[in-house]
């Protein structure tokens, strides 16, 4: 069976070890400590504000041409619809058929000659 570790002896030895840390190690630790303590206070991160602003600007730059494109599509569809309406109106008028007859007669006469 294994024996129990003597905690008091262990703590004494650790205190001894810490107390007798080599001088060059103490020097390096002091340097590390002063470097850590002398760092400037946590700087405010500008990452997210800058990213958000640049995204918005990019969106503003890209959006107008896209909006214009959609407006153009609306205008084209409106023109198409209006021309169809005009044709429908013309077809409904009797004069339209009159002129069709005239054209037909002229075509027949031309073929006979």
């Amino acid at each position: 069976m294994t024996k129990q570790i003597d905690q008091k002896k262990l703590k004494d030895d650790l205190a001894f070890l810490y107390k007798n840390t080599k001088s060059q190690d103490q020097f390096r630790l002091a340097g590390a400590k002063s470097t850590a303590l002398s760092q400037s206070k946590t700087e405010i991160s500008f990452f997210w504000p800058v990213t958000t602003l640049s995204s918005l600007l990019l969106a503003l730059l890209i959006a107008p041409p896209l909006l214009d494109k959609s407006n153009n599509q609306i205008v084209v569809s409106q023109v198409r619809q209006s021309s169809i309406d005009i044709i429908n109106e013309e077809v409904d008028q009797p004069i339209f058929y009159y002129w069709l007859d005239v054209y037909d007669n002229e075509l027949i006469a031309a073929n006979e000659n």
Binding site: D25, T35, A36
Partner: peptide, 19 residues
């Protein structure tokens, strides 16, 4: 490793103070 130990302790101190 003594050198690695120094590096790790320094990095840890720095991060603790920073955060």
């Amino acid at each position: 490793s003594i050198d690695d130990a120094h590096d790790l302790v320094q990095e840890t101190m720095y991060k603790l103070v920073e955060k």
